[in-house]
Simulated scan of single mutants.
Amino acid sequence: MTFKDNNKVKMLGVVMLTVFGVYIGLEYMLPLFAPFIIAYLIAAALSPVVKFLNRTTRLPKLLGAIISLSLLIAVIGFILYNLGDMLLNQVVALLKNFPIYLSVLTGYIDKLCEGCDKCLGIKLGTVQNFIYTNFDGVLVIIKNKIMPVITTRSINLLIGMLGFIGILLIMLVSILLLIKDDEQYREGVRNSVFYKDIHLVTSKLSGMGIAYLKTQGIMLLLISLICTVSMFLIHNKYALLVGIGIGVVDAFPILGSGMILIPWAVINLFQKDIYSAAILFTAYVGCQLLRQTVEPKLFGNRIGIKPVYTMMAMYVGVKLFGFFGFLLGPVGLVLIVTIIKEARSRLGDA
């Protein structure tokens, strides 16, 4: 076997081990260390504030950390409280008006059924009778099968919330300890024999994280703008609020703007409001074009990876890791590419 062939075999082994190691790390190791990684990121963000307070007011670092963290929690709590209050008020209003909405929906269903009867050339009321007959069966299934599952999961959710509170307390203590003794921790990391290799990977991941957040921010702004303009064009009284809301929903890969825009456009079609339906369909197409062209280009270019590979990584990530896979997929790709590039350079130097 020649030297070149030997290097190819080694690289193949490195690639296989890297892919396997990254998968094991993201699937099994990351959940164990995630609270401490988040604590480190928050501590790194608060550290400059604590150092400023220590330098200007001689405030002990631990006390400065407690004050800074308390202010951060207060701001986040204030935002979440107001959002929760707004959401609760809207839910209450929706429940109060639910009979009206149900009546309107029933009217739409009746018209749809009548249209199906005419289209299929069958007796009027056939489709309607079929739907309402089977609807009773659906209610029985919901009562006997789905509701017990929801009840069981509600108990599991309560247990999970108690566990989350415990994890949150651990994170808060970790943040304070990291800020208090940050210099000692940094010195210990720098003196580690693995510092150079770890720093190479973490610097790449840090750049990717900033690129991802900037990309999502730009995409949220652009999609909210498209949706807001479309709401103005169809003379919606809540154009800005609805446009921003659809933009936020679109940020979630499993949901997307189509979850709102497509049904809305279909309803307008049945109401023979062709203009509004066309505007909503156009807005949806515009959002999709942005997601499939601009987003991969922005994100991929900033981390040095081709857009198509970024999209593939997001898809594979969602398949492997579920909802958070759209973030973990690109993270895994950056890890794999960084490690393989470093291994290739070292094999070339050997």
Results as ranks from 00 to 15, higher is better:
I76S: 04
G107L: 01
A74R: 06
M147W: 13
L157K: 08
I150S: 02
N134L: 07
I122M: 03
G77V: 11
I122W: 01
M147K: 15
K143W: 13
K123A: 15
S70I: 03
I73A: 09
C119G: 08
L112I: 14
K145V: 03
L162W: 11
C116S: 10
N156F: 13
F130S: 04
G125T: 01
D117Q: 00
F130V: 05
G84F: 03
D110G: 04
Y108C: 04
G163V: 01
G125W: 01
T152I: 07
N89R: 15
C116I: 11
Y101S: 07
T133R: 02
I155C: 09
N97E: 10
S154A: 12
L112H: 02
V149Y: 08
P99I: 05
Y101W: 10
I159L: 05
I142V: 11
T151E: 06
L105E: 09
V140T: 06
I131V: 07
C113T: 14
Y132V: 14
V91H: 04
C116Q: 10
L94E: 11
C119M: 13
D110T: 14
A74T: 12
I100M: 10
V149W: 04
D85N: 12
Y132K: 14
L94S: 11
L95M: 06
I76E: 09
K145T: 08
V104Q: 11
K123E: 10
V92Q: 14
I150L: 07
I100R: 14
P99F: 08
I122Q: 02
D136G: 13
N97V: 12
L95G: 01
V127P: 00
V127M: 00
V75I: 15
D117M: 01
C116H: 06
I142M: 10
G137E: 01
F135G: 02
C113A: 04
G107F: 00
L95C: 03
T152D: 08
F78P: 02
N129A: 03
G163H: 05
D117Y: 00
T151C: 05
N82P: 02
L80N: 13
K145S: 08
G84A: 09
F78Q: 08
K96P: 00
Y132H: 13
K143T: 05
L120M: 09
A93K: 15
S154C: 04
K145A: 06
C116G: 07
P99R: 03
V127H: 00
I100L: 13
G107K: 08
K123I: 10
L124W: 10
L124A: 14
D117T: 00
L102F: 15
G84K: 07
L80H: 04
D85G: 07
L88D: 12
N82C: 01
K118C: 01
C119D: 13
